[in-house]
């Protein structure tokens, strides 16, 4: 009851200003950061090979472009709201600052502050001599004995007050006791009167307004706050670490737990599991599990879903994160077949091509499936084999009559990246061998090449090109050098609703029991520079003469190993599988021995 | 709700989940076999007459193999395997049943391979691997079958696994080289 209220509007502007700044400063910083880094990301995409991305736009259907445009509009609307809030916020801040500046009551309170430097009219970094000389000059001017006779009594008392203040200021800067007081309490005379109050104008707390205020507080603390907190909490609780719904994760776990080894793992099985995902039910509560399954199959078989086409695109966009969640769970259950098929299913959905022995060719645009499967005499299943024929013959094999279309298809086919293993080893940073109980990681040197390039053995690449930097930083963090490689460019995926660049998934399997030993490692940085090279297998005749290893860029993949090396000496075998999530064909699958020695 | 038919001595659980249904089927199978068992003092010891029958059929097959009558040999061995599956009671020693089956299956695999039935051989080999037989000869035959079926990537995975368990096996090494050559051709 004895509290003072903010009659003179002295305190509440500062309160509002503080609250606004707490919100606006981080928000503005975040927005500026996004603007800058967004520009950087675009630059990265431009740096890498972009022919696949451009072609992908060209071949995308109108529904997909519409779908993307709608999503972009949603995103930019939210961004516009955020920007609006930032602008409005800073405008209010500017107004408040100006209000504070012009408010007399606040200014009066400010003048009560004791500032010896302004009183003595010197700068804050003056020396003792400067202070003394300033004091002497002013005291001469304002000393009561030195004042002129023709001053009015009021002028006299003002001068006398000024003299007292000047003396105090001098003492505050020189005399020990006064200076201590000044530093502790801000005033040489010791603690001044302080007042405590509430930063609200009285009318808000008095009479009728007070009931409104109380109701307002009750609503805020008892209703609005709990509502938002509980909504946020249930949203966080409903998602797993990998970003899928807990119900979906528990469904996948249940399927894997009850998985019978006699069951053959097919695309149909994975799609069936996916169709039970909770995310789909939440997105389309009016559709059932069987519809989801049918729509996903439509995507893989490039069938138009009629009225459900937009729904299908929504499901397909969501299936990306669901498949990664399934992959994570499958590796935790150590099941290699499911892990492999999950990645293959992602490929099938991205390329809208079923998993079959001919997927590598069917993923290309303009291919006539019928003439491919029934046509040629030789059974061609791989891109590499396809490029052993000349362009005209390829056109016949793929059933493409139009020459422009054929050229586009060939451009895409030769731009699909294939991984070629150059070197592979288990490495312990700082050691020359893998010692017992050490922490090795798997270091791979790969060549990203086109199916069109002539094959050359890994021993044609000299060891010097495969060496890593041996400096202190690389020993401390062997994975830092990976970040120097550029990000993957856009994938050719005209049937996928979003723009994507994908990644490669690295799985490590113990050969002894054939089971996966750790969660997958995602690789999203590799240089595609080699794909531009013209090293056509049909034209290069003499490998020895034409091959120049220094023209080729070697990529590095480092896979962390989740367990320490075994305690005994010996040879331990692991199978390393590096699968692309985007294209059929560019995968690696090999055995790597870990030689544990003293 | 559990329902029991006292005439057929069988249980039934309508609208049950997959697991419960399987359990009920197993209980019913066990009940039927127990009811059909004539000897009140049955033991886990494999029955003499079943063993004799299975052995006879199998040896028949071997004889036909020696006479180069491959198709007939396969038929006899198939019969022997089917007999083992049907005649053996579920309470007879598992180790004996498994060994008997695996032995006959190994011969069936070879007969299939010789007659070009690669898919059949592959499934039998998968069965042998799944039931714990991870010897090198299984890997050798599986690699061979996969190569014949043009599944060169899978063949490579098999032969590499075989080599990691038996690094000095000459036959596996030869198969590995051959498969690498075929893979190179397959990829142009």
């Amino acid at each position: 009851q004895s509290y003072d209220y903010d009659e003179g509007s002295e305190t509440w502007p500062f309160f509002v200003l503080a609250v606004l700044c707490v919100v606006l400063v981080p928000l503005t910083a975040m927005q500026l950061w996004e603007l800058v880094s967004g520009g950087q990301k675009d630059q990265d995409l431009k740096d890498q090979l972009n022919v696949l991305g451009k072609m992908s736009e060209q071949y995308a259907s109108s529904e997909i472009l519409e779908f993307r445009a709608k999503n972009l509009a949603k995103k930019s609307k939210w961004l516009a709201k955020r920007n609006l809030f930032i602008i409005a916020g800073w405008t209010v801040v500017a107004y408040l600052v100006q209000y504070i500046g012009s408010n007399d009551a606040i200014q009066d309170a400010a003048t009560l502050l004791f500032d010896p430097y302004t009183l003595l009219d010197i700068s804050t970094s003056s020396t003792d001599r400067e202070i003394r000389s300033a004091y002497r000059k002013l005291s001469v001017k304002f000393h009561p004995d030195k004042l002129t006779k023709d001053l009015s009594p009021e002028q006299r008392s003002v001068a006398e007050e000024q003299f007292v203040l000047i003396t105090k200021a001098y003492k505050a800067l020189t005399d020990e006791v006064t200076r201590e007081n000044f530093l502790k309490y801000g005033h040489p005379d010791g603690p001044q009167a302080t007042s405590h109050g509430i930063a609200l104008p009285k009318f808000l707390v008095d009479s009728s307004a007070s009931t409104l205020m109380v109701l307002g507080y009750i609503a805020l603390l008892g209703v609005i706050l709990p509502y938002f907190v509980s909504r946020w909490w249930s949203k966080t609780q409903s998602m797993t670490k990998k970003g899928i719904h807990v119900k979906s994760a528990s469904y996948f776990s249940d399927r894997l737990f009850n998985f019978k080894p006699s069951q053959v793992v097919t695309l149909d099985l994975i799609v069936n599991w996916l169709s039970h995902a909770e995310e789909f039910k939440l997105m389309f509560p009016e559709l059932g599990q069987e519809t989801f399954e049918t729509l996903l199959h439509d995507q893989v078989n490039r069938k138009h879903s009629g009225t459900l086409e937009t729904a299908k695109l929504g499901l397909v966009a969501k299936s990306h994160v669901l498949l990664f969640g399934l992959l994570d769970i499958a590796t935790t259950f150590r099941n290699l077949e499911i892990s492999n098929m999950a990645i293959d299913t992602l490929k099938a959905i991205v390329q809208a091509t079923p998993v079959s022995p001919y997927s590598q060719l069917l993923q290309l645009p303009n291919v006539n499936a019928k003439s491919l499967l029934e046509g040629s005499v030789d059974d061609i299943r791989t891109l590499g084999k396809l490029f052993t024929y000349d362009d005209a013959k390829i056109g016949k094999i793929l059933g493409i009559d139009d020459n422009t279309k054929l050229q586009e298809t060939l451009t895409i086919a030769s731009a699909i990246p294939h991984l070629k293993l150059i070197r592979a080893e288990f490495k312990v940073p700082g050691e020359s061998v893998v010692t017992p109980q050490s922490t090795p990681h798997i270091s791979l040197k790969v060549l990203v090449r086109s199916a069109k390039h002539k094959f050359f053995g890994p021993n044609l690449i000299p060891d010097e090109m495969c060496q890593d930097e041996q400096d202190f930083d690389s020993l401390r963090d062997p994975f830092a050098s990976i970040l120097e490689q550029p990000r993957l460019p856009q994938t050719f995926a005209p049937h996928f609703p979003g723009k994507r660049s994908g990644c490669w998934c690295a799985l490590v399997v113990l050969q002894k029991d054939g089971k996966v030993i750790q969660t997958p490692m995602l690789i999203d940085r590799l240089s595609f520079a080699n794909l531009n090279k013209d090293f056509d297998k049909r034209t290069v005749k003499d490998l020895e003469k034409d091959f120049k290893p220094e023209d080729w860029v070697i990529g590095t993949i480092k896979i962390p190993f989740s367990q320490p090396a075994p305690a005994e000496k010996g040879d331990f075998f692991f199978r390393v599988i590096v699968k692309s999530t985007e294209y059929f064909g560019p995968d690696l699958d090999f055995t790597l021995a870990m030689a544990v020695r003293e | 709700t559990l329902q029991y038919d006292s005439n057929s001595k069988l249980l039934d659980v309508p609208d049950a989940s997959e697991d419960v249904e399987m359990n009920v089927k197993q209980i019913n199978k066990l009940t039927q076999d127990l009811v059909a068992e004539s000897n009140p003092n049955f033991t886990p010891q494999p029955r003499e007459d079943s063993t004799a029958m299975i052995k006879k059929l199998f040896e028949n097959g071997l004889k036909q193999l020696q006479q180069q009558k491959m198709a007939d040999a396969l038929k006899s061995v198939n019969l022997a395997v089917e007999m083992a599956q049907r005649k053996r009671a579920p309470w007879e020693a598992f180790a004996v049943q498994l060994q008997e089956l695996q032995f006959m299956m190994k011969n069936r695999v070879d007969l299939c391979l010789v007659q070009g039935k690669f898919m059949d051989a592959l499934q039998d080999l998968d069965f042998l691997q799944n039931t714990g037989l991870t010897t090198s000869d299984v890997f050798i035959r599986k690699t061979d079958a996969l190569m014949k079926l043009k599944q060169y990537d899978q063949a490579r995975a098999e032969v590499e696994r075989g080599l990691s368990l038996d690094p000095t096996n000459a036959k596996l090494r030869v198969l590995h080289m051959e498969n690498t050559r075929r893979l190179a051709e397959y990829n142009g």
Partner: peptide
Amino acid sequence: NQALKRRFQAILLRKEVFSEQW
């Protein structure tokens, strides 16, 4: 024994699935 039997009986179905796939 029953598990073994089930695995054995799956052979025929697996053959069909693989034949279709390949």
